[in-house]
């Protein structure tokens, strides 16, 4: 960590990442044309999660950050997921 050359990501990597993100967006928009019922939201959220993970790892360079930061970021998402689950338990089994 100390005095280590900071990691430099090449331009092509970013371009590939953008292509993947745009492709996922296209799939997400195209999927609304099909009537998948309850799965529509699930699929949309799944694609959004993949996109978010890609942005965090590559654009925000989390993959080359310290383990501490990786754990912290995962922890925040975990807490938020738990908050949603607990809230819905409350609403559904009231």
């Amino acid at each position: 960590m100390k005095n280590k050359e900071s990691h430099i990501t090449g331009y092509p990597t970013y371009a590939y990442v953008l292509i993947i993100l745009l492709a996922l967006t296209t799939i997400s928009v195209a999927a609304t044309g099909y009537h998948l019922g309850a799965y529509t939201v699930a699929l949309a959220l799944l694609i959004a999660s993949i996109k978010v993970a890609t942005v965090i790892s590559y654009f925000m360079h989390l993959r080359s950050e310290s383990l501490f930061l990786k754990v912290a970021v995962s922890g925040v998402f975990l807490i938020f997921t738990l908050v949603i689950i607990i809230t819905f338990f409350d609403y559904l089994f009231r």
Binding site: T40, A44, I47
Partner: peptide, 16 residues
């Protein structure tokens, strides 16, 4: 990027 992340969730939830 955070602004981007939030939009990634907002877009499907509101528009799709």
């Amino acid at each position: 990027h955070l602004v981007d992340l939030i939009w990634i969730f907002l877009f499907p939830l509101l528009y799709l």
